[in-house]
Design a protein around this nucleic acid. Sequence first.
DNA 1: ACCTGGATCTTCT
DNA 2: GAAGATCCAGGTA
Length: 203
Amino acid sequence: MPELNAHLERAFYERPTIDVARDLLGQILVSETPQGRTAGRIVETEAYRGADDPASHAARLRTGRVEAMWGEPGIAYVYRSYGIHAMLNVVTEPLGTTGAVLIRALAPLVGVDLMRIRRGLGEERLLCSGPGKLCQALAIGLDLHSTDLVTSERLWITPGASPRDVSLSGRIGISRGQDHPWRYWITGNPHVSAHRRAQSSAE
DNA sequence: ACCTGGATCTTCT
DNA sequence: GAAGATCCAGGTA
């Protein structure tokens, strides 16, 4: 297993959201808790921008936790979806401008047994194959909102191998702004989310 | 105060 | 393929 302690630096996140979403594929998300370490390779992401993106929370709101989308690049924007699931985003673009990348799926790498316990499931392919699933598997909750992934020892992203092929399509689970091909995943990877539209319109 | 609409996942049939 | 779980913030009153 490679060293996972290195952190991607702020400059990586301080770029156009689209570029960060694509370049996050293959990098490794690491979560450290008293129970142990869990980590997985990022295999699926989505880009969300600002006022020009009707699907982005930042297009409608600038209150409460959404304020984080204007914040320092590299911090976590975590919110609750459907009353149940936590969603992990990484803030992009320079301070004062909006943008974030939703982490949608991981390939489990470290602490797979701990993930199984947290998820109550055995099958590895289902542990992190969706944005709510991976937050449960890595114990990422609303308490980690605003965590700085550049400096945190609780949650961070470490460099991994670049994927060979990347596919893209419209985003998932939203009603507006589907026309933009801002969902990225590693072509052929079995750990991408199992949504019906997951197979559509590759590259 | 009440209502509504979600960047989802599981468990049914 | 459909429903249920269940939180949060905005809009409307």
